[in-house]
């Protein structure tokens, strides 16, 4: 039976009813980074804790990837089926801006300062039928 597997361990809590991005926070200087790492990039201390960064954030900057990247890009698209995707940095309540794919892929859907929601989505299907899951953000609909 096919399974859904995270593209890399430790990037997000999943499966979960409300998945969160995971980062690390320095026990000395309290700076936060994504993905989690054992050393602090700010002060060089070797003591960090894994923390949840949240599942919503503010779009800090964005672009749209219009052409299919060369390898190491590894989706299950072909040049014919490639669909442009958004890329942005999202300011997380955990105290760091995280680079991510965005599901919106047209300039009129994206604006600096807008609220974004984390989604864990299938990225590619392997030959054995397993789906690799990655993190992505989409704009929160104004209600």
């Amino acid at each position: 039976m096919s399974q859904q597997i995270p593209i890399h361990d430790g990037l997000f809590t999943w499966p979960a009813t409300k998945p969160q991005l995971l980062g690390s926070q320095c026990r000395q200087c309290a700076e936060t980074t994504f993905p989690a790492q054992p050393d602090c990039r700010s002060c060089g201390a070797r003591e960090t804790n894994v923390i949840e960064l949240g599942d919503r954030g503010i779009l800090w900057t964005w672009t749209i990837q219009t052409f299919m990247p060369k390898e190491p890009y590894h989706s299950d698209e072909t040049p014919e089926t490639f669909r442009p995707y958004g890329v942005g940095y999202v300011e997380m309540p955990g105290g760091v801006r995280v680079e991510a794919r965005l599901q919106a892929n047209s300039p009129d859907q994206l604006k600096i300062g807008m609220l974004m929601q984390l989604d864990i989505i299938p990225f590619r299907t392997e030959a054995n039928g397993n789906q690799k899951m990655t993190f992505s953000f989409s704009p929160v609909e104004e209600s």
Binding site: H8, P35, T61, H74, S75
Partner: peptide, 26 residues
């Protein structure tokens, strides 16, 4: 960096310069 960063299409210089320019223009 770990492989997922390149696999998911986040590791392009063109993208970075666009992201930095976008924020700078703003």
């Amino acid at each position: 960096l770990d492989q997922w960063y390149g696999e998911t299409g986040l590791m392009l210089t063109t993208q970075f310069f666009a992201l930095k320019t976008q924020r700078y223009m703003h």
